[in-house]
């Protein structure tokens, strides 16, 4: 990860015009796949991802079933047309790894023990990739799981932070990921205040690590607000305000 050019200009603007603490524009649409039990289409900057959740449903093959809990299966896949050069549609090492970390990031939020001998399948299909697709995928998958009506302790919001030009920046994009100094994806459950995913690619000092982590968590909180808004919009329409009557 060697830097070849300056990624932050003198005005403090990044390659895409954002400030160091600015998130890319995030849009979420819930319930876009009719055949799925829960689904979300997310645009996270230039990332475009569809997530579909099926289940709880019967486990096939049967031997994979767990007698005391539900099996969560995640499949992260990049479409051949999602990158500038054709991506081989066969599962790559990277996709297998991301599928695993996504599953592990979502599992703590799910109450899998409520559905013994069943399976929940999460399909994450990246239509267009621009860095941070695993975070976008986790955020969308969490909303899709809630849309599917699966019992959850909390939503999982994910966002990356990183080091660019020796500065800690929020939500790094593809260019910053490739040419920057470090990339730290974090998945976080806002209400429970627990981290479910923490990866780091690059080198950070202890202070930089702490700063980067705090920045990523702040980003997760911003993503959470968008997740919440998307779910409220789908189920309660314009009545997004909580109607609470206290006597």
């Amino acid at each position: 990860m060697s830097q070849t050019r300056s990624l932050i200009d003198k005005q403090g603007k990044r390659t895409d015009g954002r400030t160091v603490e600015q998130l890319r524009e995030v849009k979420m649409a819930v319930g876009v796949v009719k055949n799925a039990d829960g689904s979300v289409f997310i645009e996270f900057g230039k990332n475009k991802i569809i997530v579909a959740v099926y289940g709880p449903r019967e486990v096939h093959p049967k031997h994979m079933a767990q007698s005391d809990r539900c099996v969560l299966r995640c499949r992260y896949h990049m479409s051949p047309f999602s990158t500038d050069t054709r991506k081989n549609p066969a599962p790559s090492r990277r996709e297998v790894e991301i599928s695993k970390v996504m599953r592990e990031a979502l599992e703590p939020a799910l109450m899998l023990e409520d559905y013994p001998r069943a399976a929940i399948d999460v399909y994450v299909e990246v239509l267009q990739a621009d860095g941070g697709s695993r975070c976008a995928g986790i955020s969308a998958a969490s909303v899709a799981l809630a849309d599917a009506g699966i019992n959850m302790r909390d939503l999982v919001a994910a966002c990356a932070a990183g080091k660019v030009d020796d500065k800690i920046v929020l939500d790094i994009n593809d260019t910053e990921d490739k040419e920057g100094g470090a990339d730290m994806p974090v998945a976080y459950m806002p209400h429970l205040d627990e981290v479910t995913l923490l990866q780091l690619d690059g080198i950070l000092t202890r202070d930089q690590f702490n700063q980067c982590f705090d920045t990523a968590v702040e980003g997760c909180k911003m993503v959470y607000e968008i997740q919440k808004q998307a779910l409220m919009q789908k189920y309660f329409g314009n009545e997004t305000e909580v109607k609470e009557e206290v006597q």
Partner: peptide
């Protein structure tokens, strides 16, 4: 004791 009537919630929301 306060009594809650109705509230729209999503997973993780404190009721």
């Amino acid at each position: 004791m306060q009594e809650l009537k109705r509230k729209y919630v999503i997973p993780g929301d404190k009721i």
